[in-house]
């Protein structure tokens, strides 16, 4: 009796918690509303199954609890019932998987007009690199990392000369334009995670990974690291600021290029040697 009641209360309580609790995802700021939709479909289907199974169990516990003189029915199996349950389950699973795979296909198909930007992780800060006027990022190599060239940009690659390097600063992105985020790490695994964008991906040292999204809301968003990267994991924060296209251009003009930075570094190094 009490057990059946508790089982019912667990179902009711879980549903109420789901509906009434203040904890829900952050307002979306990218094109990945599809992911949210798939997630909601999954919530509906799984929520229904959870309630149905546990409530049925509660009914069984109540109805068939032991009483004097009661005997259990003898029923080794029922192929029909099992067959139907299998089919219904398979349909439910397909209903979740199919939209999931369609959205995944979108997720991994980067639009041709996406701007490439680079995110570089290291213990424990975020750096960014934007292509300059030529719209291309120069090559890079962890072996080329020095204090003056913290991202290991290849100085011999002309495509890299006009790249904008932002070390430890904020990343700006224009609203409404798809970006392909290239991810690179110079030490351990990290994960570029902005909850509002929904998309995320690991940074793997030794290779370049990627994902894409289109920012759809202007504003300031916090970047977290979502792959354990050592003791500073939780303080590895950064900021992404999504601007209107005009503001973005204004900001971009004010940033030094890799070539300018290198020249500046060499000049200051020379200054230090002189006296």
């Amino acid at each position: 009796m009490a057990v059946a009641l508790v089982l019912v209360l667990i179902v009711v309580g879980s549903i109420l918690f789901h509906l009434l609790s203040p904890w829900w995802w952050t307002p979306i700021a990218s094109n990945w509303g599809y992911i949210d939709d798939t997630l909601v479909i999954t919530f509906w289907i799984t929520g229904f199954v959870f309630a149905a199974v546990i409530l049925f169990m509660a009914y069984c516990v109540f109805r068939f609890r032991h009483r004097e003189g009661q005997q259990a029915a003898y029923e080794p199996e029922s192929r029909r019932l099992e067959g139907w349950l299998t089919i219904v389950t398979a349909i439910g699973v397909a209903a979740m998987l199919t939209p999931g795979l369609f959205v995944w296909h979108r997720f991994i198909s980067v639009p041709a007009d996406a701007t490439e930007i680079e995110v570089v992780g290291q213990q424990w800060q975020w750096s960014f690199r934007l292509p300059g006027a030529d719209g291309r990022l120069g090559t890079s190599d962890n072996r080329k990392v020095t204090p003056e060239n913290p991202l290991g940009v290849n100085p011999d690659d002309p495509a890299g000369a006009d790249d904008v390097v932002i070390q430890g600063g904020d990343l700006h992105l224009p609203e409404g334009k798809p970006v392909k985020v290239l991810l690179r790490s110079i030490d351990v695994l990290h994960d570029f995670y902005v909850p509002e964008f929904r998309a995320k991906m690991d940074l793997v040292p030794g290779s370049v990974t990627y994902f894409w999204f289109t920012p759809t809301q202007t504003g300031t968003f916090e970047v977290l690291c979502a792959e354990l990267c050592g003791v500073g994991h939780n303080v590895m924060r950064g900021t992404v600021i999504v601007d209107t296209p005009d503001n973005y251009q204004a900001w971009l003009q004010g940033q030094p290029t890799f070539a300018q930075m290198t020249a500046q570094n060499q000049a200051s190094a020379a200054d230090q040697i002189k006296p």
């Binding site: 995802w25 992911i35 997630l39 999931g100 795979l101 959205v103 995320k200």
Partner: peptide
Amino acid sequence: NVVVDVPLS
């Protein structure tokens, strides 16, 4: 379900 995992992983 691969794409649902992306925000939750």
